[in-house]
Design a protein around this nucleic acid. Sequence first.
RNA 1: GAGCUCGUAGCUCAGCUGGUAGAGCAACGCCCUUUUAAGGCGUGGGUCCUGGGUUCGAAUCCCAGCGGGCUCACCA
Length: 564
Amino acid sequence: MPKRWKETSVFESEFERNLFELRKSKLQQIEALGQAAYPNQFPFSHTLAAIRAEWNETTAESLEATRVTVAVCGRLMAIRAQGKAGFATLQQGGQRLQIYVRKDAVGDDGFALYKLLDLGDHIGVTGYLFRTRTGELTIHVERLTFLAKAMLSLPEKFHGLADLEMRYRQRYVDLFTNLDSREVFVKRSKVLKALRKYLDERNFLEVETPMMQQIAGGAAARPFKTHHNALDIDLFMRIAPELYLKRLVVGGLDRVYEINRNFRNEGISVKHNPEFTMLEFYQAYANYQDLMQITEEMVEYVAREVNGTPITEFNGRTIDLSKWTRLTMKEAILQYWPEEAGPKPATTAFENLDVLKARLVAAVDSLQKAIEAIKPVEPAPVAEGEAPSEPPVANVRLRELKTIASALIELGNEIEKNIPLGKAVYHLFEAVAEPFIYDPTIVYEYPTVVSPLSKQKPDDPEHVERFEFFVGGFELGNAFSELNDPEEQHKRFEDQLKERAAGDDEAHAMDEDYVRALSYGLPPTGGEGMGIDRLTMLLTGKKSIRDVILFPLMRQEKAKEEEG
RNA sequence: GAGCUCGUAGCUCAGCUGGUAGAGCAACGCCCUUUUAAGGCGUGGGUCCUGGGUUCGAAUCCCAGCGGGCUCACCA
């Protein structure tokens, strides 16, 4: 049996149900004044932004001398009534503008309508610009038009919607009550525009490849599974567009890019959302060196387009996206090697698993001594009404060292299982270097064993022409010279199958059609992927990926009542 | 998955060592023709996340659960 409207869980309380009824009766009164309850359009002459752009600095005298009549619309965000007159604040396009309504200017019906308005209502007004006693640019309203009613009450007008859960779940409220939130998504759109502009100007072709795939390839990750009924086949949501994009380069589309969602069935964190947006681009006849240059240039370009500067504040640090460092993976390990872990690994540690293992054992030992030596500092008591200060430096370092130590212990256990040397070096890099790389850094020379799709260095088959780039403590992207030898690719897939058989459920799947595509000849090609959510985080200073995704994945709320 | 932490009116929050729930905003009524977190007077509004337990008595203490946040784990 269908539920009656009033019993739906649209409403959170009796308070809201009653308010809804009250607003309905106001709507009827508004109709009685000759206004439509839900009109279709309003022909405005200016956006609020346009008014700000043109008259923000115009003096009161000048506005009085040359009367400017405008028609604007927006949502009411504040109402300050004063008997037979009143002010209100209109919000539209992320801008606000004050309006002034006087009974003698809008007439009895117009003023009756003003009295029936609530916070959140949409209205249109026609009138002329003036400045109030305090100098604020204001529209002196001559005609009010009702446009749509807010049937629920708005969040507290001074603090806005503060509850993070509600901001994520009810983003529609967050967006109009917290304009800084809106600004993040405006910037996100600028990031996408800037990337497209950069690539389009270089003759890249934007393409779209399957997001439902029979083999989820192109990355190491667990996929989501779904099913097509008519064909009765299982499909995977893609974890990367990589293999399809390279098929396109085989097909003669020399420069392609795709900006869209990838889906990975993994944990959720401040840096991870199950669906996330990725840019991937491929350029024929280029190698990873060319990509390094493009990366540095493109990130800086986007920062300037979005923020007007390559400087950004992130997680309490100032980052200059125009200044890049390039390190080999081993250099990065040595540079970020914590002094508390004792002597840095010798060159031989990167060539021999046993030597590496011995160094790790010593490092863990040294780290544990250092950890014991640090006395955690009691955080300063928080005075009433003050924000808690940053945690003491010693405590932060203590936590970091603990994290490194446990990662190294874990790595030691992995080595016991005789993992390939390259994989061990890579994990070592992830443990000691990656989380600490704040300034823009390109890390190159990756072990072949962790790079099944990259091309080996001509003089060193143990390493590939690949780099990842890191900013703000996380990986921003990944790029390499594409492996285009079909026989070698087939062998790498086979190796991955062995890894999978050995228990690595994120090892790459075999994709024979991809090998077949390579068999027709992929020109030398450089390809790169970049996380757009993370780039947006950097450029907006947001620490959590949820703050740059409009509708981040949330657990389902417990049903408030049985479904009817 | 683990640890820490939070959940009180539509919203933002207070509520001490247990004594039966408060403020501001929002809402409703009245006053107010240059206000701007407008103001003044008055009114209504609560399954204190849920379920157990301890107690004469629980928003408060204990246990379990649900949901959020952070940290860790997971995650090229």
